[in-house]
């Protein structure tokens, strides 16, 4: 028994000695869009690990051992917040037991905490499906939301790593200028979409719809997170026939069948959107994400 303790201490000591001196800020980003933003703002001064991909439902990520290892070594955990990660991050953070990145400390930042939230439920009841108490968490579908988040991230990075404070400010200002110009470009490209009636597969697009002025007439899920039954799809079909919609949009990680069914039965084009960085082949960074999203929307409209 005592020997074992000595061995463990020895091995532990070796690992601590072998750990490289802190050169860059290790960022643990929960979702690809926030990882991409961290790269934009941090540049070479940060090393970004992204916990999920654009092909995964961010509500349901496994609290994998690799995530615990990465969170244990992180200087900043940068998540979406608004309970999007409530099914996995609490376990990851508790098991990583890294004091630097626990909620409430400078090393923990939630993007949703600086964004004006929409869809805040009046009634908190799980009979309503997968509702989030602090509002619809999918804020990354509106590019304007990246501005306050970039702001918060840059100041947080400067707080954690004051030596590179000027670098973060410079990169932030450059990003913001470029991003504002891009937003104007996307708005111009998407102008024809204004006021257009569409269907959504899951209610994850409210920020995008508000931005571009699209109107969602119907959702293919009866309640958020509840897959449609055939009976419900028949209702949707009736609704769509009564008030036609121009397309159905869904995220890359979602099952394509409901929207494809509507395409076959009502001729409503099913449009798959990247939803986040890595959600499509083209969406390699934040700019490409919205280039591709707007492009797919404009091209997806039923003639």
């Amino acid at each position: 028994m005592n020997k074992l303790v000595i061995y463990i201490v020895l091995i532990g000591g070796l690992f601590i000695a072998a750990a490289p001196a802190q050169a860059v800020v290790n960022i643990f980003a929960c979702e690809p869009e926030w990882g991409a933003l961290a790269t934009e703002i941090g540049g070479d001064a940060v090393s970004v690990y992204v916990a999920s991909t654009g092909r995964q439902d961010p509500h349901q990520i496994q609290a994998r051992p690799s995530l615990i290892a990465r969170a244990r070594n992180a200087d900043l955990v940068f998540c979406n917040g608004a309970e999007l990660e409530v099914g996995w991050m609490p376990v990851v953070l508790r098991q990583a037991a890294n004091g630097k990145v626990q909620p409430g400390s400078p090393g923990y930042l939630e993007a949703a905490s600086v964004v004006a939230m929409k869809d805040i439920p009046q009634l908190l009841d799980r009979a309503g499906g997968d509702v989030h108490a602090s509002g619809n968490p999918h804020i990354q579908t509106d590019p304007r939301n990246f501005l306050p988040v970039a702001d918060a991230l840059a100041s947080r990075l400067a707080e954690i790593d004051p030596v590179n404070g000027a670098l973060y400010k410079t990169r932030h200002d450059a990003f913001v200028a470029e991003w504002r110009a891009a937003i104007q470009r996307w708005e111009a490209e998407a102008a024809p979409l204004k006021g257009m009636p569409i269907a959504v597969q899951h209610k994850s697009w409210i920020y995008l719809l508000d931005w571009l002025g699209l109107k969602d007439i119907v959702a293919l899920e009866p309640k958020p997170g509840v897959p449609p039954s055939s009976g419900y799809l028949a209702e949707v079909l009736a609704k769509v026939k009564a008030s036609p919609v121009k397309m159905t949009i869904r995220a890359a990680y979602e099952d394509g069948r409901p929207s494809q069914w509507l395409e076959q039965n009502a001729g409503v084009p099913a449009v798959e959107l990247p939803f986040t960085v890595g959600g499509s082949d083209k969406a390699k960074d934040l700019f490409a994400l919205f280039d591709d999203t707007v492009d797919r929307l404009v091209k997806g409209v039923r003639p």
Partner: peptide, 17 residues
């Protein structure tokens, strides 16, 4: 909004901006 969000798990630090 803050009141509405009260009885959820303790939310992270409320933003820097």
């Amino acid at each position: 909004r803050a009141v509405a969000a009260k009885d959820v798990a303790p939310k992270a630090q409320a933003g820097q901006t």
